[in-house]
Every structure is written in structure tokens, then in C-alpha cells.
Amino acid sequence: MVDLLSPTFLTAVLAAGIVAGIPLLFASLGETLAEQAGVLNVGLEGMMISGAFVAFVTALAVGDYWIGLLAGGIAGAVVSLVMVVFCIRLGLDQIVVGIALVLTAEGATSVLHDIWYSRSYPRLPNVEPFRIPLLSEIPVLGGSLFSQPLVVYVALAGVAFAAWAIRRTRWGLELRAAGERPDSLDAAGVSVVRTRTVAELMCGFLAGVGGGYLALVGAGTFVPFVTHGAGFIAIVIAMLARGRPWWCVLGGLLFGISLSITTALQVAGIAIPVDFVEMLPFISVLVVLVLFVRESRLPSALGLPYLRGSR
């Protein structure tokens, strides 16, 4: 049985939780933007796995994880164009198109992986962490919270910016209006289609970056179906966070750290059935978000296509 309280072990548990939580943070933040604009992006998993694959291919080719993440984000945005065209522009069912998008992306990346990498299964080296001076010297927290790849801190800055922009800017007001009262936004002379399109592309980009992070930092490789349902978990987090970006951070990290604690409990040999232990991440996220975000609600026009003049 391992010493649960040894600094090395605690640091590893916390760091693993952050690694697992960051892709969810990116993807749920993107989903939040889309949902605020009225688009239920069920295809998030497809955008994540496309981003994971393209980020992996790019990072492997150029040896730079920043370029890999950027490529992953662009791939996610390109995939989100399917939602833009079929759902936002043509008004088709967002759930049906989203599911089709997931299945297509999973199949396409699986086939491409089979063609290019199924005989070599290349792996990537670890991404060097950015150690925040002084803070990274703190026992346990320093080696985990304050010694992460730089993109983690960029993500947190992005959340702060998104939280501010949604509540304090004209763009944020238009975004929320597109999800709450698209007809009013239209009457005010702002294009609902354009507002939703921008939100959806941002969602795709963030989901792609999240998938890229999962492949480059989390797994260190790409295998078919590597996202393993992370996109759907991110949708749940976003729906429970209900438009509040900081709650996406909480949901993502809570899920990741709970996942990591399940491993720690097993390693420590604590006599709890594994099946029960593995429910912990899902239960913890549901309980916390349901308890503390009850007062907020989802946009009224979420999932509904907007066609000018129709009722």
C-alpha cells in the first residue's frame, strides 16, 4: 500500500487531475459560448477528436506543441463549419447533425490513423512545464498547480476574458440575445446568423484545442477514439455551468481531480469497490454544479434554429 500523503504521490495525483481536467475546461468553455448563442453543439466530441488528431499529426511533424495546438484548434473550427452550414444557416436539427458529425469525425480519424500510424504508433515527449517563480517551490501545490504547460495558464486567462466579455461587452450582450431572444436581436439590426456563426466557430476552435491538449499532453499519443467521450462530459459541464465560464473551470478540474483521486484510492488499496470509486467524478461534478448553480438557467432559444420571419 502506498503512502497517500507523501509529497511525490500527492503532487502526481493533483497534476494528473489537472491534465484530465484541462481538455474539459477548453471544450466546456467553447460549448458555453455556443449555448449562450442558442446552439446546442452535440458534435463537440467530433470537434475534439478532429483537433486531437490534427494537433498530433502537426506536433509530430514540426516538433512544436504550440503549433500543434493551434492546428488542432483550426481543425475544430473547420469541423464546426458543418454545424454552421447545416444548423445555423439551413436550420436543420442540431442534435441529428451533431451526432452525425461525431460519428464521421471518429470514423475519419480512425481510418487516417490506421493508414498513417497503425504500424508505428508514435509517441510524443512530455511537454515541458512552465514553472511559476516562487509559487512552484511550494510543496505539492508547486509541483502540480504551478508547474503546468503554459497553455494551462493561457486557458485560465481565456476564461477570465470570456467571463468578462459575456457579461460586460456589447458582443456578449448580442451573444446572449441570440440565445434568449433571437427575434429581438434581429429586430435591433444585428444578424443572428452571424452572431451564432462566430460563437460556433469559437466553440469549434476551443474544442479542437482541448482535443489537442488531450492528445499532446494527456496521452502523449493518438489512438482511435482517444477522446473517449470527453466531449459529451464537457457538454454536461457546460449545461450545468449555465453560461458561467468560471464554473466550467470548476467543473472541468473537479472532474479531473476526482478521476485522479479514484486512481489514488485504488493505488492506496482502500477497500471500496472499483465500480463505486469510478462513479466519483460524475457524482462530484453533478452534486457541486446542481447545488451551486441552481439559480441560473439555460437560454430560452437553445437548440432552436432561427429563420427570419418564421414562428
Binding site: 502506498v2 504521490f9 495525483v13 494528473a16 491534465v19 484530465a20 499519443t221 473517449h228 486512481t263 485504488q266
Partner: peptide, 30 residues
Amino acid sequence: IQILQAQVGPAGYGDAEGGKTTTETLIAGG
């Protein structure tokens, strides 16, 4: 001899990320 063990998930056959982080935790345990 000390033996540490962990399961990635109920059906994590393709969960490479879970495989990596779980293995890293075991290595941190010695």
C-alpha cells in the same frame, strides 16, 4: 514485495490519456 494496482475505467480499452496518467501515478508511488 509491494504491489500497486489501478484500473483506468470500466471499459477504458482505448483511453490512452487515462492509461498514461494512471501509470504516472503508480510510478509516483514508487
